[in-house]
Write a protein that binds this DNA or RNA. Structure first.
Lengths: 210, 210
DNA sequence: GAACCAATGTGAATAAGGGCACAACGTTGG
DNA sequence: CCAACGTTGTGCCCTTATTCACATTGGTTC
């Protein structure tokens, strides 16, 4: 176990490993080798061992990894042995469908606030019981409800301004669905989810690959 | 201009550049330097020049890049000077909201087919006029409507089987929203959109960064 | 309890990617 | 027409990430 700087790619892969391991757990697989896990995750076995080695020794030589244990270890590493409170900003198509989406809760992410600017939406009750607040109340509500992570699902034009408000409210982690690069101070970590980019990438491969 | 293998990261960035350039175009900016564009995209200026250099010389020394031209050039590179037909598989929360989402059409991606297994959904007409087909008809409909790219928005459990069917139907590009790694032959290109991974990544930063 | 087995953990080798710094070269001004 | 300027395009280097290959070591068997 070292204290080297951990590559971002490693963190991403840990998340993938965890998901695969959780599936294996449901299939009552108790132990798995890096080789088999690697195949299932589509990576190199050495990669898995090295990724894990950043954080400790979790395997048993000659045997492999104990699935249930490893899931817990990775959860601990990623900071997932707790729950995180999310705030959704923007309740258009994407925003509303994400709030209804069950995968968040399943992994310990709980929406505790939702915002929009549309007066027709403000005050409405969402399927999960949340009442929509106006964006003007953002800072107050976010502090009040102990929100840790902001989710931006507004149109592109509003994203930067929302990000600014989130940061003012003390948020240090943002998941951005708007198709723009938002600028934030170093203390804040932004992850972009941009399927247009992914589609462009597919288009490129289809055009050149043939 | 070389014929080296293009890094995937370059393709992703080209897509980002294009989006930023399109914004600039709407603000009537005619010419831009790599330095200014870089700042706006959050990358290194040399990176931009190098990315573009893979495909040709698009700038004017001492001046910069002509915005409108560069947009077209990048479109040409990525294969976006045409439209692409998409098929949505899975009309749950995410699937339906994506179909309603305007950004796809704006960038030349058109849904020409939609599938689900739920008998209550099959036959229904979607807001964009598409009638939902049963997944059993997938291969037939996809060939008939000349679909190029499959979008998987099913639960995790169904994703691999849907992917298999898409590939049988001759699809070579898949955008996967299901939170699993799907296995496909080399001829098919898969891009995953997995916000759980992104959230885990934020959680990691929040837990360690403080 | 000793010898064998199998899969881990890791140092070294390889590959890839990103950034600096400068030469090349249009453009503009005198 | 020439010189000065500014930004591109790119060779080189450095950093980072991935893969290989093997020594290490817990478990298992006889």
């Amino acid at each position: 176990m070292k204290f080297a700087k951990i590559p971002m790619a490693t963190i991403n892969r840990l998340s993938v490993y965890m998901r695969t391991l959780q599936e294996l757990l449901e299939e009552d697989v108790e132990v798995i080798s890096s080789e088999r896990l690697a195949k299932q995750c589509g990576v190199n076995p050495a990669q898995i061992r090295k990724d894990l080695a950043y954080f400790g020794e979790f395997g048993v030589r000659g045997v492999g990894y104990h699935v249930a244990d490893l899931v817990n270890q990775i959860k601990e590493i990623l900071g997932l042995s707790r729950t995180w409170n999310l705030a959704m900003v923007g309740l258009g198509n994407i925003g509303s469908s994400l709030i209804r989406h069950g995968n968040f809760v399943k992994h310990g992410y709980i929406f505790t606030a939702a915002f929009d600017v549309d007066p027709q939406k403000v005050g409405k009750k969402l399927p999960n019981g949340l009442v929509v607040n106006h964006v003007d109340e953002l800072e107050e509500v976010i502090r009040e409800r102990d929100v840790h992570i902001g989710v931006i699902a507004t149109p592109a034009g509003a994203a930067q301004s929302v990000a600014n408000q989130l940061i003012l409210a003390g948020i240090n982690g943002i998941l951005n669905f708007a198709p723009v690069q938002i600028q934030v101070p170093d203390c804040c970590h932004v992850e972009n989810v941009d399927f247009t980019i992914k589609l462009d990438c597919i288009a490129y491969h289809l055009s050149t690959g043939v």
